[in-house]
């Protein structure tokens, strides 16, 4: 009997001293990849899929417009709206918005501004083409339709 008792006395703890290190590693990964949300998106965003995606190299030159049906339908109606920096704007306000976005950039880089349009799949071309026309008038002529990669 005494023989068995002695064996049972061996340590049975799993060493957990490395656990914080593992967690920290995960933590750092997420801290590095995180982009904190700057705006609360108030429109539905079912981003369409495509295959020929291009990547934007300079994120500082990109400004975002969100287009889609408002999430609060009872307040804003169900017609797709344009959202820029937390507020809904009309197509005619896009020129002004582009001017404001350009002011944030360095003077030499202002004509390189890229507008990323995050458009809901169900939005209609009419509204989008109104935006495009305003962008042309504002001389912001690099346009990116945000899409996600279509897996075949």
């Amino acid at each position: 009997m005494s023989k068995f008792k002695k064996k049972a006395n061996t340590k049975q703890d799993i060493p957990t001293s490395a656990l914080p290190d593992i967690i920290f590693m995960l933590l750092f990964f997420f801290m590095v990849t995180t982009v904190l949300r700057e705006v609360t998106i108030n429109v539905k965003q079912r981003i369409p899929e495509a295959t020929q995606l291009r990547k934007l190299e300079r994120k500082s030159l990109v400004s975002y417009l969100y287009v889609g049906e408002p999430k609060k339908v009872e307040q804003w109606g169900s017609e797709p709206r344009i959202q820029a920096n937390d507020v809904f704007i009309e197509p005619s306000d896009v020129t002004l918005w582009v001017a404001q976005e350009k002011d944030k950039l360095n003077e030499v880089e202002r004509d390189q501004i890229t507008i990323a349009l995050k458009v809901d799949s169900e939005a209609k071309r009419g509204l989008i083409s109104d935006i495009e026309l305003q962008l042309r008038k504002a001389n912001a002529r690099k346009l990116l339709y945000s899409t996600i990669l279509e897996l075949e």
Partner: peptide
């Protein structure tokens, strides 16, 4: 950080627009 993370999606179809019609 898991909750606040949005992995940036800066990809899409790039097109150049023609100049101002006016």
């Amino acid at each position: 950080f898991l909750v606040t993370t949005t992995i940036a999606n800066d990809k899409g179809l790039l097109i150049p627009l023609p100049p101002d019609p006016d």
